[in-house]
Write a protein that binds this DNA or RNA. Structure first.
Lengths: 113, 113
DNA sequence: GCGATAGATCGATAGTTGTCAATGCGTGAG
DNA sequence: CTCACGCATTGACAACTATCGATCTATCGC
């Protein structure tokens, strides 16, 4: 344990800090896992694709194509929103859901691969 | 909602078949969800990053950095292998795990975003 | 104000999953 | 052959999650 940081054991810093260099810290892993957990459900993937395709949909428009009850749809939109993938805009009695702009590329890729 | 290109159902295949066009079928959604489910665990993400960083690791080398029991590590490697993300090569008493070559780009992206 | 509607929340339940101890199965060293 | 070691499998248990019915809150039309 001669020197400094325990997490980085390479004695000489290499020229190319590749992404796969660090073994992914606990916190990062947890955050990433939560994001992927949000995508790990068929209903949420279909929900995401519906929103991504339409640009904007209210919850009531999602119940029928997903063939799930209204509380269940609300549950899934909440999880996707907590993961930071979609955001809801309340206008009158309706809540319009859309993909978070900064995550649009990620979502498109997630649905397309 | 005039939106000409939105309802794009013309029989003639256009030049750009966008991903968000179809609402993601049941089967595709299920397959995709399984893949993301494999990534929806912090331990598996760290395991993946360890393998991706080292290129090749045997199970016994994973137990300590993951701080999980041997059966648990075996459980996680199996799930990642079932998802087609890693593959195991048995050499003697050891099984060496590595990222499936055709999925390397996907894995790197999954760990990096 | 009143009834109707959109959506969130609560409570309950069935199914899934992460974890470990114990055990089984090959393989290599002696 | 026998023992030690690496790894997979089994069984059990706790934690989490998807789902729905019932209920509550907020908003609109009348």
């Amino acid at each position: 344990m001669a020197a400094g940081s325990k997490t980085l054991e390479s004695p000489a810093a290499p020229c190319c800090p590749q992404v796969t260099d660090a073994p992914l810290g606990d916190t990062e892993a947890a955050v990433l896992a939560q994001t992927y957990a949000a995508l790990a459900d068929p209903v949420r993937l279909k929900l995401l694709s519906l929103i991504a395709a339409s640009g904007e949909m209210c919850s009531c428009e999602l119940v029928e194509p997903l063939a799930k009850s209204q509380p269940t749809v609300s549950h899934h939109t909440r999880i996707l929103a907590d993961a930071g993938l979609i955001t809801g805009d309340k206008r009158g009695r309706w809540v319009y859901w859309s993909v978070v702009p900064t995550r649009a590329a990620f979502v498109r890729q997630a649905l397309g691969s």
